[in-house]
């Protein structure tokens, strides 16, 4: 029951930030500097989501995680295929873990 309370609470605090800007901003004309700032949010967010989280993605095996994320970076630079990138990254991590004696 305690967990259900947590889930309902988390649902509210996740949904409200997702929804509020649509209700507020769709009625306003956004000034140009702000628009530009908002345009830089995506790469800023992705950069911050990847680092440092990716390095610590496999507890106590930072090297394997680094190999995995480096594989993703290198592969997606040459071929823009999302699912293949994810698959190869997992395989690279798996291989490193194997050789590290996981």
């Amino acid at each position: 029951m305690n967990n259900i309370n947590i889930i309902i609470g988390m649902m509210l605090v996740t949904f409200i930030p997702r929804c509020l800007p649509f209700l507020a901003f769709s009625r306003l004309n956004i000034p140009r500097p702000l628009k530009k700032f908002l345009r830089y949010i995506p790469p800023a967010a992705l950069g911050a989501l990847i680092f440092p989280g990716a390095i610590t993605a496999i507890p106590s095996y930072p090297f394997a995680a680094t190999v995995g994320i480096a594989t993703a970076l290198a592969f997606s630079w040459f071929r823009e295929e999302i699912s293949l990138t994810v698959l190869l990254s997992v395989i690279a991590t798996l291989t490193s873990l194997y050789f590290l004696g996981y």
């Binding site: 992705l46 990847i50 496999i58 995995g68 993703a72 970076l73 990138t85 994810v86 990254s89």
Partner: peptide
């Protein structure tokens, strides 16, 4: 565990 981050990289 790496899949989530590989997804972000690919995006």
């Amino acid at each position: 565990g790496i899949a989530l981050y590989a997804l972000f990289v690919a995006l």
